[in-house]
Simulated assay, not measured.
Amino acid sequence: MAAHFLFLALLALASSHAIASDPSQLQDFCVADLHSDVFVNGFVCKDPKMAKAEDFFFSGLDKPGDTGNKLGSNVTLVDVNKLAGLNTLGISLARLDFAPYGLNPPHTHPRGTEILVVLEGTLYVGFVTSNPNNQLFSKVLHEGDVFVFPQGLIHFQFNNGKTSTVALAGLSSQNPGVITIANAVFGAKPPISDEVLAKAFQLDKKTVDWLQAQFWTDNNN
């Protein structure tokens, strides 16, 4: 009985790991057919005989992103939508540019863990654990420093210096997704009831209405 229970527990753990990450490829590659009308969890493959080098190539991460917005930051994500050869490979990449005192606001990646390295400048970064502890893990990073943000947890990056900062991030999904907390809560379409938000954030409805009327910047490209 104990051996049977152990087998079921190990099977459950293996299944949960498989469900919680991008599926493993069953062939050398599966270039995404971004124009297919077939809907699956990911993208269907185009005929491998039609694959070409350009399917595995992206150019442009040498160019700084436009940080001339309210946040003073820009994220250039290279995921499966921009690099079809990433389909089924479980990875993506992003360049992060920050003006002095620029912020990549609190957000989550529902489908991927992020690992970030600072190439130029400094960043104050951190993530918050789930309920009930909500513990903040934070650090000031300098050139060459690396930090990891676990999948699904709220995290941020802030340039606390007087010069521009550049960072590079890898993510453990071909399409990690991003949910910017303020945008999602106060910029939802149609809007979330101000009564709900007022009670959730312990604010009066006028303040909630004012927040919902703001333009919430999206710094993701």
Score class of each variant (00 low, 15 high):
Ser92Pro: 10
Phe57Cys: 07
Ser92Arg: 11
Lys46Glu: 10
Phe43Gly: 06
Ser92Gln: 08
Lys70Gln: 15
Val38Met: 05
Leu89Tyr: 13
Asp66Arg: 10
Pro64Gly: 07
Asn41Lys: 15
Lys70Cys: 13
Lys52Glu: 14
Lys52Ser: 14
Phe56His: 03
Asp79Lys: 03
Asn87Trp: 09
Val44Leu: 03
Asn74Gly: 06
Ser36Met: 06
Tyr101Thr: 10
Pro100Cys: 12
Phe39Ser: 13
Met50Lys: 14
Cys45Thr: 09
Leu89His: 14
Val40Trp: 01
Val75His: 05
Phe58Ile: 13
Leu77Ser: 08
Met50Ser: 12
Leu34Ile: 13
Val80Asn: 03
Lys82Met: 09
Gly68Phe: 08
Phe43Thr: 09
Asn74Ile: 03
Leu61Tyr: 11
Lys63Ala: 08
Phe57Gln: 13
Asp37Asn: 13
Thr88Met: 10
Phe56Met: 05
Asp47Gln: 03
Lys70Asn: 15
Val44Glu: 05
Ser59Pro: 03
Leu93His: 00
Pro48Phe: 00
Phe56Leu: 00
Thr76Cys: 05
Gly90Trp: 05
Arg95Ala: 08
Ala53Cys: 01
Leu103Asp: 06
Leu83Lys: 11
Leu103Glu: 04
Ala94Val: 07
Asn87Cys: 06
Ile91Ala: 07
Pro100Gly: 09
Ile91Asp: 03
Val38Phe: 01
Phe56Asn: 01
Leu71Trp: 05
Gly102Asn: 00
Asp79Ile: 05
Lys52Leu: 11
Glu54Gln: 09
Lys63Ile: 14
Leu103Gly: 00
Met50Ala: 14
Gly60Cys: 01
Lys46Arg: 13
Phe43Arg: 09
Leu71Gln: 12
Val75Gly: 02
Thr67Tyr: 05
Pro105Tyr: 13
Val38His: 06
Ser73His: 00
Asp79Ser: 04
Phe39Ile: 15
Lys46Asp: 01
Pro106Val: 10
Lys63Arg: 15
Gly85Ile: 12
Asn81His: 13
Thr108Ser: 12
Asn87Val: 13
Asp33Thr: 11
